[in-house]
Structures are given as structure tokens and as C-alpha cells.
Design a protein around this nucleic acid. Structure first.
Lengths: 227, 227
DNA sequence: TTTTGTTATTATTAAACTATGAAAAGAAGA
DNA sequence: TCTTCTTTTCATAGTTTAATAATAACAAAA
């Protein structure tokens, strides 16, 4: 994660740098705002911390310029206490605004919060399809294919199958399975219920209980679907 | 935009409400945290403002609970000045943290900034015409063609159809459908209402309920229109 | 081998969900 | 206001699914 820090108060910039480096961020520290735009062309910045009042160019103008091309989170840091400035900052495209003197740890926490969001949105959406050993299970479409053949599963059968597939290769304890499939609907479940569902699943996959090829029984523990 | 406000200090909650309403946000105001999770199932909330210290459940626990299922921005507001609280709040999934007394305009500015981000990332490039399998549905003209033939749909029928078509190929849970079609209008809906509308839609498409070609029933889950 | 604890099977019962027809309530337009 | 169209509600019927209970089969330990 690359973080840009621009502040013409040398001590402040240095302090921020120290705290960020402690968290293993790569810090690009500048005491003036010129050359910043050139830097952005070269380095992929993930978040910027800007001072509002600087000699050569104020932070607001810089922020606007950045926003013309880039979309990473921007945090303003300033000695200005005036409310109007905060609001202006947030309005022109900044994501946060801190007033000096600020607690460095708070700045770090805010940096993390913004990066979490930023990353979250820029990451590929999580997988809703699991595909292995002739099994394709799709949560969006609620479909289950077994050796290219579509098999209808009921709601609970599907939930059990999905959970087993998510944990394919690993044993899933009966309790665990229950908790995940039934959520907190009931507090207890005769695990015979699960057994019956497992049997149905095995039937639908033409699998046998003795020597099963897919849903295996782990005695005294639970079930497992082989990877 | 629907904004949830939870604060057991009545005056604070009321004040926030006033400012947000001025900006034309739809505000859901609560003085206690119970029932919040139920609300979230029914209404599509876009941002939440939570108090940290409340009688029945502290804001942090509520935040965690919300984050298990939802992803909208959360702003904490509190009288606590302790730095540790700020940091904890931001760490457990909140997006911002304001200390009372705060300038209402700043809160509004922050709300806007967060919503801007949130929307930006969640807006799917919007299509106004969906065309597949002999179905053409156009949101701009509010027209629905089925096998080249224009079919009149009522407002709600159209909304349901549109949502199903947007998610064509995927199951749409009844709750989900309800939340998206009725927005925040009613808090509860006998899902029989949806069933009746589905029936009408199927009738207009000369589709049958058993063995339907278009709107399929996924037992215990919802409906799906095949791609 | 017997006992014990766990899993499998089967059939039955109960519950949950969906469909439908009709009517009431509500909204919109003439 | 009256009429018409839309939406919701109600009662009921039909269907699917899930839970239960009883019994059989099995594996591991004593």
C-alpha cells in the first residue's frame, strides 16, 4: 500500500511518516505540492494525506487536480479549525478531514478504515460458484450440476451441499453444519435430521453410504466431501 | 437515500434528523437499538449514524452485528472523547467517528462524502433496456414487449418484472424483491401480495405456475426468470 | 463377543410454502 | 361522484419440504 503525504510543516509530515511506516505502509513524503502530479503518473498511490494550507498551492486545489484523474481516498489534515473549511474539503472530493493537533493513532485508524473500503470495492467480487470433481454449485442461480447433469436440490439440501463444498477436503462437524445451515433458528437439532438430508443428497448423486465417493462419513465427527 | 439514525439522546437524534431531512434524505430514527436488525431486513439502508453509548446495546456491538450482513457506511457519533474508542470504532468496521458536540453541517458533509463513495462503487452501469428470450423491457418508456407483442403492466408488475429481469438467471429472494419494489413504503408485506402479482405476470405471459417457462419458483427461496 | 455409541433407512407426520379465486380496499381518471 | 383499474387481503386448496420416530445396521471399545 502506497501512501502519499504532503505537508509543508516538516515535523508533521515526518511524524505521520513514522506512524505509517510502523504499519508497514510505503510512504511518499513531500514538503511541497509541486511535482505531486508527476509522481502520481509514476506510482500507484492508494491513499493521500494532504495539508490544506501550503505555501505553493493550497490543498484544495491539489485535491481537485488529483480528483480529475484519480479516485483513491484523500484525507485532509489542517490547523484550520474553521468549520467551513472542513465542509468545503469534504465537498470537493476529500474523504476525511482531521484537525491539528490530531492523535497519530487516530489518523492511522482512519487510514486503515479508508483503505479497507477502497480495497474492498476494488477487489473482485467474491466467488459464488464452486467447481470441482464434476460438481458445480452456484449460489446465485441456486443450481447444482453433477457430471454436467442438473440436479434439483431443496433449500436445505442446497445449503448443506454449499457448506460442504466450501469446506471441500475438510471434515465438517455436524454441529458446525447445523449452525451454518439453520443459522440460529433452532437451538437444538436432532442430528438425525441432518442424516436424512445427507442420505437424500447421496441418493441424488447416486452415491452409497458404505464406500461413498463423494460425501464421506467421518465417524464421531461429521461429514466431508472429497476434493 | 435512506439513512438510519440510532441515538438514545432524543435531542441529538432529533437534531440529526432535522439536518438530514433538510437535505432530502429519508431518515429512520430510533432511540434504542433493539429492532434495528429487523428494520434492516425490511428497508434498504444506505448509511447509518450510530451512538456509541446506549442503554440497551452499545453501538459497537450493533455495528458488528450490522457488518455481519451489511456493508453500507457507518458513522459513529459519541460524547466519548477517549482516543481508544475512536480507534476501536474505526477498527470494527465503522467508516467515520465524530465527537459530540459536533457541527451538524460537518456531519451532513461527511454523510455526503461517504454516500458519494458508496454510490460510486455500487452503481452498476445502468441499463434502461433489457432484451432477452423474446422479452424486451424498457424502463424509460415503461414498456414491456413479449414476443414482439406489447403487454400492459401495472406499476408494481413492471417493477417486479424489471427487478427479475435485472437479475435474470439468478434467484431473487422474496424479501429482496419486496425491499426493491416497495422501497420503504410499508414495513411489512404479506408475501401473498407478491405471489398474486407473480400470478398476474405469469397470466399475462401465458405462463403456467406448474412448469413455468419464464418466472420459475424456487421453493423456499424466491423466484427466478430464466436467462 | 458383547456392549455401547453412532450412523443409516424407512415411513409417517407435521409444517411450511405456494397457488388460486374472489372480494375488498385503494387510487386514478372521467 | 361515479367508474374503472390497480393493489391488497382473505380463505382455501394444493403441493413440497422438513422433522420425527422407530428400527436396522454398523464401528469401535470393553
Amino acid at each position: 500500500m502506497n501512501i502519499l503525504v504532503v505537508d509543508d510543516e516538516v515535523e508533521v509530515a515526518d511524524l505521520i511518516e513514522i506512524y505509517l511506516k510502523k504499519e508497514n505502509y510505503q510512504v511518499y513524503k513531500y514538503y511541497e505540492s509541486k511535482d505531486i502530479l508527476k509522481l502520481l503518473d509514476k506510482v500507484k498511490i492508494d491513499l493521500a494525506i494532504l495539508d490544506v494550507m501550503m505555501k505553493d498551492m493550497d490543498g484544495f486545489s491539489l485535491c481537485k487536480k488529483i480528483r480529475e484523474k484519480y479516485n483513491f481516498p484523500i484525507i485532509f489534515v489542517t490547523a484550520k479549525v474553521e468549520e467551513g473549511f472542513k465542509i468545503e474539503g469534504l465537498t470537493i472530493g476529500a474523504d476525511d478531514y482531521l484537525t491539528k493537533p490530531f492523535e497519530p493513532l487516530e489518523l492511522v485508524a482512519r487510514v486503515k478504515a479508508h483503505l479497507r473500503r477502497y480495497k474492498e470495492y476494488n477487489e473482485i467480487p467474491k466467488e459464488n460458484v464452486i467447481d470441482f470433481r464434476g460438481i458445480v454449485i452456484n449460489q446465485d442461480t441456486h443450481e447444482f450440476y453433477f457430471n454436467e447433469k442438473k440436479i434439483n436440490l431443496t433449500k436445505i439440501e442446497f445449503a448443506i451441499m454449499w457448506y460442504l463444498c466450501q469446506n471441500r477436503g475438510n471434515v465438517v462437524a455436524v454441529d458446525d453444519l447445523f449452525k451454518n445451515v439453520w443459522q440460529e433458528k433452532y437451538f437444538e437439532c436432532d442430528n438425525n435430521t441432518i442424516m436424512v438430508h445427507i442420505r437424500h443428497l447421496r441418493e441424488k448423486m447416486h452415491d452409497t453410504s458404505k464406500n461413498p465417493k463423494y460425501i464421506k462419513t467421518i465417524w464421531g465427527v461429521g461429514y466431508k466431501i472429497e476434493k
